[in-house]
Amino acid sequence: MSTLDAPHTPTFPPLMYGEAAADPVTHAQMRAIQGCDAGLVAYDLGQSTLQAAIVFAPDVTLAEAAVMLPLCAVGFQNALGALGPPETAVQLEWDGGIRLNAARCGRFGIHASTDNPTEVPDWMVIDLTLPLWPLSDAPGEHPEDTALYAEGCTDVQAPQLLESWSRHTLTWVRSWEDDGIKPLHEAWRGLAWQIGEDVTVLGTTGTFLGVDENFGLLLRDADGATQLIPLTRLLETTP
């Protein structure tokens, strides 16, 4: 039976709840603006793409709350690691990109009620877009891009991956609240893509040294100076 043949309505852990939506990102943002409870997971289990968005209600400033982006990404790696073949390598780009066996495979986005790093947002939304099937049947047409089922993960059903992602993400939120950011730093660093290499991010090129305490990107430029790009620079437009 195909991974997409059997209907399955996702179930979510306590404190999280799901709502199917044709456009999960917009749906989550609009529900957040309307004052929905945190923990909403809007999702669309399409034939070729999994899309989902989680609503958060931060009680810290945007600069600190933006850590939800790498936190959700680590939760995703944990989820796919638990469900997929053991040889599948999942790595995380600082700006939200996902690498599956070194090829690009979806990404995370971040949205909030404010773009002021010193303000406490009324809400924050982290979204996930994950291609399940390749863009084209022609091998080599998009050599840098891949999809979940093209990488040997055909036994990973999208609803189960969504459920697992929500559970692992909630576990990391609790860890962040109880133990601080250090465990998340350690987990993320072991998954980070291209640390120590030259990268170009948001128009800035340099050697990727790592991240600061709030996961701001540290780049060393050609002159040896270190530049900091905060996570808040990744905020996307809010309706």
Rank of each mutant, 00 (worst) to 15 (best):
Q160S: 14
G96V: 05
D122P: 09
P10W: 02
L148R: 02
G39Q: 07
D145S: 15
G206P: 01
V156W: 05
A112K: 09
L218C: 08
H185F: 04
E87A: 08
Y149W: 11
L45S: 08
I195S: 01
N116C: 09
D145V: 09
G180I: 12
S166F: 06
C153W: 05
V67P: 01
G96I: 04
L209M: 13
D221T: 02
Y43F: 14
A138G: 04
P10N: 03
G109N: 14
R99L: 12
V201E: 11
A20T: 12
Q29K: 12
D223I: 00
G18L: 04
E141K: 13
L80M: 04
W172P: 01
M16H: 11
V173N: 01
V41F: 03
A82I: 09
T146Y: 03
P230S: 09
T11Y: 00
G97K: 06
N78F: 02
C72L: 13
E119C: 00
M16W: 10
T171S: 14
E163M: 14
L83T: 07
T238S: 11
G203V: 02
W123S: 12
P14C: 05
T232S: 11
D198T: 15
A52I: 02
A102Y: 10
L184Q: 03
D221A: 02
E186V: 09
A22V: 09
T26V: 14
G81F: 09
Q29E: 15
F215H: 01
W133G: 06
Q157H: 11
A66D: 05
P58V: 10
A53S: 08
A82V: 10
S48T: 15
F56L: 09
S48F: 06
A112N: 09
G97N: 09
V55N: 07
T11K: 10
R233S: 14
N214T: 10
A52S: 08
D155T: 07
A6R: 13
T114G: 07
R167M: 07
L162D: 04
E163D: 10
Q91V: 00
